[in-house]
């Protein structure tokens, strides 16, 4: 930006940005033309037909009725076009690429915590490689927040009761704003940070800079700490279902419905185990509501995901471990 003090739009730093800006600019031209047209018409007519003597009356003339049909039909057609364009963008954003790098985020009053699959943790800063899709799975520890990357043209509300995910692919290296966009209390405007987009080699170097073990291995320790492994054994003898190979599969429940074992199913099964009991098992698992923090929950999730991939690598090709190399 030439005039850094007076930007008209933020830098385009993601694959998504130029698509959003294209629709924005199209809408400015379209609505600007129509609005200015209306202003000039009103102003012009109001001058042309201004009342000269005080008692002057209007001419007894009505414009043709066909105008009504015109200005109902034409805007409706234009609106449908905008609807399609806007929805196309929205779909694009909702569909996470398969090879996305997984990152976990937690919002809490008033900071952003990020965890990398390899175990690195950071607060209010997020290091990501350039030119690689990044998927952020996130939850809130308290109120609703909203993770907003203006330079990537994307945001998503972060909820306290379930996982949500968003993705982006940065197209240039640098430092870009992170804001919280959903009002969350006293220091809402201080819940900000920076995303550091790095060259892949730099990112690898940064990742190598020490960690407490991968998220999955930390999750495995928690799996033992919370004594999950006493019931969820690796063979079919346990009182709970086997978790290896579970992630991403369909599960048949005791009421004969099926659900997909995704992030939110695993989360719910830990916090509210009676909600969806697997067919053939007794509803004996205690709730872990209030005992497992969001950080730990994400590690447990990473662990369950990792053993899911060990047995069924074909369904989820993205390597979750330290093997994360750039394409």
């Amino acid at each position: 930006m030439m005039v850094a003090d007076f930007p008209l739009w933020p830098e385009q730093a993601s694959t998504f940005a130029k698509d959003v800006d294209a629709l924005y600019i199209f809408l400015i031209i379209l609505t600007g033309t129509v609005s200015v047209g209306i202003f000039l018409t009103i102003f012009g007519l109001a001058i042309k037909y201004r009342r000269r003597p005080d008692n002057e009356l209007a001419q007894d003339y009505e414009p043709p009725k066909i105008l009504e049909v015109t200005w109902i039909v034409v805007p409706t057609i234009i609106f449908m076009g905008l609807f399609v364009w806007g929805s196309w963008l929205y779909f694009h954003l909702a569909r996470v690429p398969d090879d996305a790098l997984d990152i976990y985020a937690t919002g809490k009053q008033w900071m952003w915590k990020f965890q990398h699959p390899t175990g690195q943790r950071e607060i209010n800063t997020l290091h990501v490689p350039v030119n690689r899709p990044i998927k952020i799975t996130m939850a809130s520890e308290d109120v609703i927040h909203s993770l907003f990357f203006p330079y990537f043209r994307t945001k998503m509300d972060v909820l306290p009761n379930r996982y949500r995910s968003m993705w982006f692919q940065a197209t240039k290296t640098g430092r870009f704003h992170i804001f919280c966009a959903e009002y969350c209390g006293t220091l809402h405007s201080g819940m900000i940070g920076w995303v550091e987009v790095m060259e892949p080699t730099e990112y690898q170097k940064w990742l190598a800079g020490g960690s407490e073990g991968s998220m999955a291995s930390q999750g495995e320790q928690l799996f033992q700490k919370y004594a999950c492994n006493t019931c969820h054994t690796n063979d079919a003898t346990g009182r709970g279902p086997v978790l290896a190979g579970l992630y991403g599969k369909d599960v048949t429940l005791s009421n004969d419905t099926t659900v997909k074992a995704d992030d939110n199913y695993i989360r719910e099964s830990i916090l509210n185990p009676q909600a969806k009991v697997v067919k053939g098992f007794n509803p004996i698992m205690p709730t872990f509501q209030g005992q497992v923090s969001e950080d730990d929950m994400m590690k447990l999730l990473a662990y369950v995901k990792s053993i899911g991939q060990n047995t069924a690598p074909a369904t989820t090709p993205a390597p979750a471990g330290a093997k994360g190399t750039n394409p």
């Binding site: 109001a46 929205y90 945001k155």
Partner: peptide
């Protein structure tokens, strides 16, 4: 006349917000 002008601007900017993919960027701003 001011009302028609300002309401028009208010109305057409609603189209920006109704366009799903664009709303993601501008909502809550």
């Amino acid at each position: 006349m001011g009302f028609i002008g300002l309401f028009t601007i208010g109305g057409v900017t609603g189209l920006f917000l109704a366009s799903l993919g664009l709303d993601i960027h501008v909502t809550d701003t």
